[in-house]
Design a protein around this nucleic acid. Structure first.
Length: 416
RNA sequence: GUGGCCAUAGUUCAGUUGGUUAGAACGCCAGGUUGUGGCCCUGGAGGUCGUGGGUUCAAGUCCCACUGGUCACCCCA
């Protein structure tokens, strides 16, 4: 075997595509009911778009992007996440000017060059949504509920929703200084990763999984306790609205997401059915991002959810697999003349809307019956010299096994 | 990028302190029914034991390197 798929990429095989199609259908349905319209953007963009939106110093931009120069020398990047492309497209086509509120969703492949592990691939798929134009906490909650609706409809049960507020440009700077000051007092005890973050992105130090880091930062101030009036009110509203909708959640003052553009609300949905990479979906509000990308100041909220991780959970929790249905009819033929008849009749019946299969390997009748059984055909039509002459055929029901002679003209009504 | 574990038929695996024709189950093919599936029975095909080197009289088995997979760290979907 010479060629293999690239490290961290995966073929989705026929036995799995049924599940994927089902999930995609549910996503479309949920999004449609909440009035989000689909947008499809290219899988690559100019590199600067991602650097600008995600943040120059984030892990994604500094070490995980698939970046390359095309033949003209332009720096292009395979999209590592969906928000940047969606906003770029919305701005490019002035979508935000056509109505005060714009609600979009997407579904598609993303690329990040990380070391693969359970629930993490180099090419993976996400579905997500972006809502542009309203600062209302209602919209934050609508966005949080979107993936939850999808999960509920798919029967994904053990889920954890965690939310936090990361403040805004008014309250974050002061808090940030205070946090840095505190972190400096324990600097020596922090992990190397966290030490590096103190200056670049101190909030992420609090989100560290390192036990030692956790211990030393026990007494660190939390942003949720230092929000400005506006952010605090907003956060309170988000919580009370979530309560009102009955969605269970917890507040984690240390939750910070890896993308720089979030303001106010940040959230994450995790599942215990996953391994170490347990985030099923994440998102938040980004009121400054549109302006950052050259649009006029427009508030926004969004989320992204991983499809592969969802598939893992669906598989583990034994949610129903909609196994592929077999053909309505398998036409088995025993000699050359009837084989020819079988093929033309197969095509004719397909044209009329029936799922029909026939033999292509010139196999024995017994083998054709086995094949029909393997494919879970509901009926088998056996045709040979006798039948061809008489204008009849043997129609066998593969469930009960009973067989009868039908005239060829009766076939369609017998199937229907 | 760092580290642990793993690598034998299509698949899941076995392979005794290194010992001569590398096995099983499932799957696949065919026959048992000269025109009839599922269950059962019989037979068959299918493997450069990941690749390259080394140790040895002898390597699937031991050693090294590489490649790939996997899990974890980092971070995230």
């Amino acid at each position: 075997m010479k060629f293999r798929s690239i490290k961290g990429t995966k073929d989705i095989l026929p036995e799995e595509t049924g599940r994927w199609q089902h999930v995609e259908k549910v996503v479309r349905s949920v999004m449609g009911r909440s009035n989000y319209r689909e947008i499809r953007t290219p899988i690559f963009e100019e590199t600067a778009l991602f650097a600008r939106s995600i943040g120059e110093l984030t892990d994604i931009v500094t070490k995980e992007m698939y970046t390359f120069a095309d033949r003209s020398g332009d720096s292009l990047t395979l999209k590592p996440e969906g928000t940047a492309s969606v906003l770029r497209a919305a701005l490019q086509h002035n979508l935000t000017e056509q109505a005060p509120l714009l609600k979009l969703y997407y579904q598609g492949p993303m690329f990040r060059q990380e070391r693969p592990q359970a629930g993490r691939l180099r090419q993976f798929h996400q579905f997500g949504a972006e809502a542009l134009g309203s600062p209302s906490p209602q919209l934050d909650v609508e966005i949080i509920l979107l993936p939850l609706h999808v999960y509920r409809e798919l029967g994904v049960r053990p889920l954890t929703l965690v939310i936090n507020s990361v403040g805004c440009e008014k309250c974050r700077p002061a808090y940030r200084e205070q946090l840095i000051a505190m972190l400096m007092t324990v600097y020596d005890q922090l992990s190397p990763e966290s030490q590096a973050r103190v200056k670049q992105n101190p909030l992420r130090v609090l989100d560290s999984k390192d036990d030692q880091d956790r211990k030393v930062t026990q007494t660190a101030p939390l942003i949720k306790d230092h929000l400005c009036m506006e952010c605090k009110t907003h956060f309170d509203h988000v919580q009370s609205l979530l309560h009102a909708t009955g969605a269970p959640f917890t507040v984690d003052g240390r939750l910070v997401r890896g993308l720089d553009y979030y303001t106010k609300t940040a959230f994450e949905i995790t599942s215990s059915a996953l391994g170490s990479q347990d985030a099923l979906a994440g998102g938040g509000r980004y009121d400054l991002l549109v302006e950052e990308l050259g649009g006029k100041s427009t508030p926004g909220v969004g989320f992204a959810a991983g499809l592969e991780r969802l598939m893992i959970v669906l598989e583990k929790t034994g949610a129903p697999v909609d196994d592929q249905r077999g053909p309505d009819l398998f036409i088995a033929a025993v000699d050359e003349a009837s084989r020819r008849w079988a093929f033309t009749r197969t095509e004719e019946l397909r044209r009329k809307g029936f799922a029909v299969e026939t033999d292509f390997l010139q196999r024995s009748l017994k083998s054709q019956m086995r094949e029909a059984n393997r494919q879970r055909a509901r009926w088998v039509l056996v045709i040979g010299e006798k039948e061809l002459k008489a204008g009849t055929a043997q129609l066998k029901n593969m469930l009960g096994g009973e067989e009868r002679t039908v005239t060829l003209n009766d076939l369609e009504s017998a199937l229907a």
